[in-house]
Simulated assay, not measured.
Amino acid sequence: MRPITGEILIEAPRVAVFDFVANECNEPLYNPNMLRADQLTPGPVGVGTRFTAGMKGPTSTTVAIE
């Protein structure tokens, strides 16, 4: 898996930013290459939470928070 890196200044508390980014369902809001993201496991986002994501093009991916 290729790492994804980037940087942006966000005027919000770190905890709020982390919680937003950790929830993969939010990624289509800021990643133009992601069409959709759905949580596969029940409950709040945390270690072991799994998501599936639909990307532009012929691929989709499953993401797990570790």
Rank of each mutant, 00 (worst) to 15 (best):
R50T: 08
M1V: 13
P28S: 08
T59C: 09
F18R: 12
M34H: 07
E27C: 09
T41F: 07
A16I: 12
V17G: 01
G57V: 03
Y30P: 00
E11P: 00
M55E: 12
N23M: 04
P28D: 07
I10L: 12
R2V: 12
I10Y: 01
K56H: 08
Q39D: 00
A37M: 09
P3I: 13
A22V: 02
I4M: 10
I8W: 09
L29E: 10
V15M: 09
E24D: 07
T62K: 08
E27M: 11
N31S: 15
P13D: 14
T49L: 03
L40Y: 02
I8F: 07
T59P: 00
V45I: 07
F18G: 00
E24Y: 10
D19C: 01
A12R: 14
P58K: 06
M1N: 10
V45S: 02
G48W: 05
P13I: 01
E7N: 08
M55L: 15
A22Q: 10
V63C: 04
P58H: 02
G54W: 13
T62Q: 13
G57F: 06
V15E: 15
G43S: 04
V15C: 04
R50Y: 02
R2F: 07
R14H: 10
T59H: 11
P42I: 00
I4C: 04
L29D: 08
P3E: 15
P58A: 10
A53E: 13
E66W: 07
G48Q: 06
L29Y: 06
R2P: 11
G43Q: 07
R50V: 12
C25Y: 00
I4V: 12
R2I: 11
V21P: 06
T5I: 06
T62V: 14
F20C: 04
P28T: 09
E24V: 14
A64M: 12
V63N: 02
V47R: 09
V47L: 12
P3F: 12
L40K: 06
G46S: 13
E7V: 09
E66D: 14
F18W: 15
T41C: 04
A16N: 13
P42A: 10
P28N: 08
I10R: 00
G43F: 05
V15L: 11
V47I: 09
V63D: 02
D38T: 13
V21M: 10
R14I: 11
L9H: 05
A12G: 03
A64E: 15
V21K: 02
A37C: 15
P13N: 09
A22H: 05
